[in-house]
Design a protein around this nucleic acid. Sequence first.
DNA 1: CTGAAAGCGCTTACAG
DNA 2: CTGAAAGCGCTTACAG
Lengths: 338, 338
Amino acid sequence: MATMRDVAERAGVSIATVSFVVNNTKPVSAATRERIEAAMAELGFQRNVVARALASRRTRILAMAYPALEHRLGAAGMGFVTSAARRAAERGYHLVVWPVGNDAAELSDLVGQGLVDGVVLMEVLLRDARVDALVASRLPFAMIGRTENPAGLPHVDIDFDVTVEDALTYLHQLGHREVAFVTEGEPRATFRLYGPKVRAERAFERGCAERGLEALMVECEQHAAAGRETAREILARHPGTTAIMIMNEHAASGVLSGAIRSGVRVPDDMSLLSIVTTRDMGAMADPVLSIMRSPGEELGTLGVDLLIGQLEGEPMPEPRLLPCVLEPGESTAPAPGR
Amino acid sequence: MATMRDVAERAGVSIATVSFVVNNTKPVSAATRERIEAAMAELGFQRNVVARALASRRTRILAMAYPALEHRLGAAGMGFVTSAARRAAERGYHLVVWPVGNDAAELSDLVGQGLVDGVVLMEVLLRDARVDALVASRLPFAMIGRTENPAGLPHVDIDFDVTVEDALTYLHQLGHREVAFVTEGEPRATFRLYGPKVRAERAFERGCAERGLEALMVECEQHAAAGRETAREILARHPGTTAIMIMNEHAASGVLSGAIRSGVRVPDDMSLLSIVTTRDMGAMADPVLSIMRSPGEELGTLGVDLLIGQLEGEPMPEPRLLPCVLEPGESTAPAPGR
DNA sequence: CTGAAAGCGCTTACAG
DNA sequence: CTGAAAGCGCTTACAG
């Protein structure tokens, strides 16, 4: 590999001048610039990013930190990572992936190595030791998700209030008055601090109260069999239910087939709406599920933008909350008798 | 951040000696080692990985290169990345993700930056310019997947021969004599070079020939609606078919519901076997699909091991081919009349 | 507009 | 067992 020294010799200049044209950081006369560019082309020069990082104290590497044991991150998880990596590349950065535990020690350790200029933190909890560790480290970071009170901390997240409110409005306008909400259930204690679930539940309760509806919520493990069982349970205990809203991607198809197996027609007797999910997931069911699409890729892109913005001294961008967008499928219809 | 110089001063030694104990690279007397370790603890010293990389000419960063536009990589793609990142971390490496185009120029450019010690290349084609570029770069690499003739190139891949053979054996033993194979179809020209598809088709043809069966193969786009249409087509044109093998994760549930909508009972009238997929995908269908599980995470782990093996001068590990493993669900049964 | 030089924080022969 | 010193390949004041 040719170095700057090689280029400088060939062009008959100092390496400083080569650096100036490579980085376009100081004025250089057209003549010498041309000589240098010719030399670079002839030698196939590429600047060594490690040396640049050490000298400039900026590695131009970002980290994407996500929970190591997170199996919930399926297709959506890949969407975060690929969109974030793409955006980072577009802006001249690299993205490393850091599977980290929920304890902050591991993250602090990684940060201390000095490899990255900043961190994008995924799957943030309402109270999150990793966030505290990042604040303490003074390294720039951005959250995908947010703590209980994220004011002042750069973040992007799904707008659960708007998403749930839009979902309820949609179902309510279809005439549904008894709506069940199937959420994710998990034994792990930290799950009580899982923002998406907590925020969606609060929004559901509020939305139901405003409409004078009962807020029926059921937790369900994250697989199809549990979804089937949950559907049966709802039908047995709350036979008046005409619509089920689901925020549990892996159980949604199970809820559907559980209902169908119980002799319920979807959407004639029962509407199903799967929220915070992807078109692909909805399309795999039969009938195709109506969904509210999660803005997964947008969040990855925005998270990186928020971080790079800080690194490059742009005016601190506002936190962004993006709602999921309704994409009706075949599983929602007017309530029976309407 | 404390540097080695700080530690050395505090311990009253040279920075060389500090380096020796940090890296455990030369014998140091117990007494001085203790002083140094105490100093490190007091200062909270962490070695700067960028400086180490520059001095040692090893960054201990690996790249995972995958096709930028690849939307096929859903949950399985995340499995590759997370398992690879975890393995890299276990062995003291970082993993950067590189979304790259199919042309080799982008990859060569990234390699030339000197950021990584090696590359794990995903979604390798039978003839692949990126592989040629990596060979030319002389940078160590490992493939997940393989070219047409990968002898001498480190790789891990699914053993499509064994997988398809096992699938056929399973169906044949259940009495099925007319088996259709639904594969992925795509307009892109490079898809003709997509190894998994080509190898599976060859294996299917061979297996059918050996058993005196007709090798019925149908291409299908990668979504559920196309799967439904494909099921109808098979039923209409080949009414004797009693089993469908599917290597098209996103269409599998569609094939199932297409068959059911046509009045076919699964598995009584028709068996369905989805190969090279995940338990999660199979479980989302009703009835639960019998699958052959893709060893996605194992491939990610092995790919990293293969790469690190080269970097650390271990004897060149053999390429590894892993078969998918049969996990019967509710969608396969003896052929009708058996 | 251009260059000489210090320095980023380590590793690694080399010498003792 | 330990240290002085060169060097990894750049960037960046500073001087001219």
